[in-house]
Design a protein around this nucleic acid. Structure first.
Length: 675
DNA sequence: TAGGCAGTCGTTTTT
DNA sequence: CGACTGCCTA
């Protein structure tokens, strides 16, 4: 039987309350994951609800994985069999996969990332409006917003108010048709399509309501309209819903999240019960106090007062640095120094920043001091060119209609098939109403292309068809290896990367990808799941790969991440760098008047720290190759000044700063020499 | 068609 | 300052 005794009274109540829909307002570090995981265990053990009737939804794969592990530990492997713990997007993918026909897709459909989508939109706008491409970002964002708001192209056309909205709605409509033709969905469709499916097909909805009898949603303040509707459909008139959220940690409004969904719950579920978790188990008193003090500058829907019974702890430090390089050096040397002095590990340190590019300076310094670090986010595994290439082949393998993938890889590595050939091929395919892939083997090609070009296309088409056959009739992984061999991808990398060493690294990434596919298929077979290469590739696109994380978590590395990426994580020692106006809060946020969301981001950053918190800013910063003076962030002034130590604020001379840096460096060198 | 070169342009956050 | 585009030549 599950043990709830470690929970405090509020947590305990939240875990046991199953009489109706429940909203848990969980402040930062208040142990919400414990509540969710123990509640799942409680539902299985004490309430007799079968694990396969329970679904828990999170926003990141990392959170989902962690939750799954913790539930397993609580109820034992067997007990949690069939339990769904996944991201919203993964749940959506599953629903689409099970309702393929009704949803109007064929098996092996592709999931396109933003780059692919942007290319399609560029293409559409070029054709339909002769647009040269400065509006693409805007249009792409607008379409995404429409989808997040559960607005179909037809609906968007009806409600368009301005010529621009009209243009966006038209592009949306054509774009959506192209996706269908490609047998592909984008990220937003993974939510939108299932929701529309539930709205329009009572039988499908009934099936899923029967399957999911209890739904738990984490980070509820991050849901968008489509996601909320999906939740409402799944829950229906029943009471099996627990949502956990914190309006102060809503930092994703820019991608359609609606923090007001928290308040909306009261209206949509009149019997909603509200439980607040206000005890923080993570941070020292001063850090927590600082966080409360900052966030008090925001208006609040729900009043909430975080407290902690840990001691006050060290004061918060604000470090003024001469410039961005000095800032990076200061942080890097301090980490080394503290590690040696207090015997902590590299992994105890996190450096947080507003924008990905800010990691660069820190990276350089850490590298020069030989400090191991892990860069999360930014140029991710799936953003790498070699991975996108191979993923292109994989996608084409399982979905020949995927023109976006075709275009990516048709001339990579070089096959002497250039823009002119591709343009003619596209015209021909459009005329015949087929995909580019199947057009390559059609007979009519001779009419429009030179024999040489036809030959090259045909060779490619036939070759890939052969590989595809092997993948389906034989060992799929072997087929993929054969593919990579055939195109001599390694040779291509060798030619194309700066150094042989780099090429080797990139090739390792490729093999890692192939391994992931293999593992995924193996694992599925073990459990008896019917998971095909299609599923494996789909999950890959959603980055649902466990191995990579596990491996890297083993290592003792300083953590470099954006403030956004830091949500849900915690570290003993936290540095937040670049605390300057126009950087944090970001210039765009000042202009767009979304300071409150920036403040919440600040709040998230502060509350990541368990023991010490250091905030740094640079008096001068290089940007666009020019050096400009800066103003320190307004958020620094919003901290409770009696708990804060400013260093270098009052014009301590540049000389003194320099000297101090030199001293640190020298003492470090001395310490290093001793080791 | 590919590869090199020079001018351009610009940096929020992500499933 | 550096990444990216697009032009130009072999």
């Amino acid at each position: 039987m599950v043990d709830l005794s470690q929970l405090n009274p509020r947590q305990h109540e939240a875990a046991k309350y199953i009489d109706g829909p429940l909203l848990v307002l969980a402040g930062a570090g208040s142990g919400k994951t414990s509540v969710i995981t123990r509640k799942i265990a409680y539902l299985i053990d004490a309430c007799g609800i079968k694990a396969h009737h329970i679904a828990a939804v999170t926003f990141t794969n990392k959170a989902a994985r962690e939750m799954k592990e913790r539930v397993n530990a609580l109820v034992g492997k067997g007990g949690a069999k069939g339990l769904t713990v996944s991201t919203f997007h993964n749940l959506g993918l599953n629903i689409i996969r099970h309702e393929l026909k009704t949803a109007g897709y064929k098996s092996g459909f592709s999931i396109l990332d933003q780059d692919d989508c942007k290319n399609i939109i560029r293409d559409v706008m070029h054709r339909e409006h002769g647009d040269d491409g400065d509006m693409i970002e805007l249009v792409q964002n607008s379409i995404s917003n429409l989808k997040n708001d559960l607005i179909t192209p037809e609906h968007a056309l009806q409600v368009a108010q301005s010529p621009q909205e009209m243009m966006i709605a038209q592009t949306y409509a054509v774009y959506q048709r192209m996706l269908k033709a490609y047998n592909a969905v984008d990220f937003d469709d993974l939510i939108l399509v299932p929701t529309l499916l539930f709205r329009d097909h009572a039988d499908v909805l009934a099936r899923w309501q029967k399957k999911i009898r209890y739904l738990l949603v984490d980070e509820y303040q991050d849901t968008n309209t489509s996601q909320y509707e999906l939740v409402k459909f799944l829950v229906g008139q029943r009471s099996g819903l627990t949502v956990v959220g914190d309006d102060d940690q809503s930092i994703y409004a820019w991608r359609g999240a609606r923090p007001e969904n928290l308040a909306l719950l009261k209206k949509d579920f009149p019997t909603l019960k509200l439980i607040k978790l206000e005890q923080n188990y993570r941070s020292t008193g001063l850090i927590l106090h600082a966080a409360n003090h900052v966030i008090d500058n925001n208006p609040h829907e729900f009043e909430k007062k975080l407290w902690s019974d840990k001691g006050y702890g060290d004061p918060i430090r604000i470090l003024k640095c001469r410039n961005d390089e000095a800032e990076a050096e200061r942080v890097a040397t301090e980490i080394i120094e503290r590690r040696m002095r207090y015997g902590c590990s590299y992994r105890d340190f996190a450096v947080l920043y507003r924008g990905n590019h800010q990691s660069r300076a820190i990276e350089m310094k850490l590298q020069s001091f030989q400090v191991p670090y892990k860069l999360s986010g930014g140029q991710s595994f799936f953003g790498r060119n070699e991975i996108k290439d191979i993923m292109g082949y994989l996608r084409l393998l399982i979905n020949p209609s995927d023109d976006a993938a075709f275009l990516r890889i048709i001339n990579t590595p070089r096959r002497e098939i250039g823009p002119t050939t591709i343009e003619k091929l596209s015209e021909y395919a459009a005329m015949r109403g087929t995909s580019l892939m199947s057009a390559t083997t059609e007979m009519g090609l001779e009419q429009v292309l030179m024999p040489k070009a036809v030959d090259r296309l045909r060779r490619f088409g036939q070759w890939l068809e052969g590989i595809t056959r092997n993948a389906y009739t034989d060992d799929p992984v072997a087929a993929i290896k054969e593919l990579i061999n055939d195109i001599d991808y390694e040779g291509w990398l060798l030619q194309n990367s700066g150094t042989p060493h780099q090429a080797e690294r990139r090739m390792k990434n490729v093999w890692f990808l192939v391994d992931s596919v293999a593992k995924m298929i193996d694992k599925a077979e073990e459990v008896g799941d019917e998971v095909t290469i299609e599923d494996a590739v789909g999950k890959l696109v959603l980055r649902d790969m466990l191995e990579q994380q596990e491996q890297e978590d083993e290592n003792d590395q300083v953590q470099l991440l954006t403030l956004h990426a830091s949500k849900g994580l915690e570290y003993p020692h936290v540095y937040i760098i670049g605390m300057e106006e126009e950087l944090m809060p970001h210039r765009n946020s000042i202009e767009a008047n979304t300071i409150e969301e920036e403040r919440r981001l600040m709040y998230v950053g502060i509350t990541r720290a368990k023991r010490t918190l250091s905030l740094t800013y640079a008096a001068k910063r290089r940007q666009y190759g020019e050096t400009a003076s800066t103003t320190h962030s307004r958020f620094l002034d919003e901290l409770p000044q009696k708990d804060v130590e400013w260093e270098g604020k009052t014009e301590t001379s540049a000389e003194e700063q320099k000297q101090r840096g030199q001293e640190t460096l020298n003492s470090l060198k001395g310490m290093l020499a001793d080791f």
